[in-house]
Design a protein around this nucleic acid. Structure first.
Lengths: 138, 138
DNA sequence: GTAACTGCAAAATATTTGCATCCTT
DNA sequence: AAGGATGCAAATATTTTGCAGTTAC
């Protein structure tokens, strides 16, 4: 049941605790991305704001989740699908944010095209964030 | 001299005031983008935090500047080059952020390629932010 | 003169830190 | 038992709001 959750945590050399399991579960059960506020709300009254900060922080460092910058300046977090590592994220799909309902959707099947970067720049990460109206809100 | 500055402000139907001229001047004299903090620092001791917030806010609304979301969650602001409007921004170039020195550079000549969005999504804005190491920091 | 802009004070929010306690290993 | 994780309190930092005084048109 939660063996997947425990596996992820252990793989990142983190202790398996209630808070971490709960937050990780939220991510696993959510197709899109979550903000700090979402997590506090949906986790019930169970735990502290500070724990959420620290948990997100360490998940980021371990490469379990990644942060998605949005145009309206809220930060969203989403699970890394595969070979992210503490060294760097390789999250090569496009993120779509609906201006109306605020939902974030990972468009797994829209991949990021090659960009003609000048050779003097060394890219380690490419983020593509599209804003617009999703199909539900049209 | 500052006729360009005044022209921009008048074009957006804003009163020409000292603070607005100063902030706009900062943007015009800066190749990259500025954070809220940058602006407070570089503007001298002259004016209030609150004025900076409000000025950035109204510049955003009028389409004089646009906000660039960054992976580390600071917001940067940069001048809109041409036909941005209060309706929507059309900032079709790529932003590069150096992880080392923190500088933001607009890559005007790298344009954003067409993306194969599913038809049910309606994109109004596409942001591409690349993180990496710039040539000075290599 | 009027409407809009600014500065100041204060409120509301958000984030970080220290420390004592509790839980995982 | 030891080290790490959590909760609480408090310190900081950030953003928003109200209002009175000032400035642009």
């Amino acid at each position: 049941m939660d063996s997947q959750i425990e596996r992820i945590l252990k793989h990142s050399e983190l202790s398996v605790t209630g808070g971490r399991k709960k937050i990780l579960e939220l991510f696993l059960h959510n197709p899109g991305a979550l903000s700090h506020g979402d997590i506090e709300k949906r986790a019930g009254e169970k735990f502290d704001r500070v724990t959420v900060y620290r948990t997100l922080q360490i998940f980021l460092e371990k490469g379990i989740i990644h942060a998605i910058p949005t145009a309206d300046n809220s930060i969203l977090y989403a699970l890394c699908k595969n070979d992210c590592s503490p060294i760097g994220h390789h999250d090569n799909h496009v993120h779509f944010i609906c201006n109306f309902c605020g939902k974030m959707i990972c468009l797994e099947n829209v991949s990021i095209p090659e960009l003609n970067l000048p050779p003097e720049f060394n890219a380690t990460q490419v983020d593509v964030v599209i804003s617009g109206i999703c199909k539900e809100c049209k």
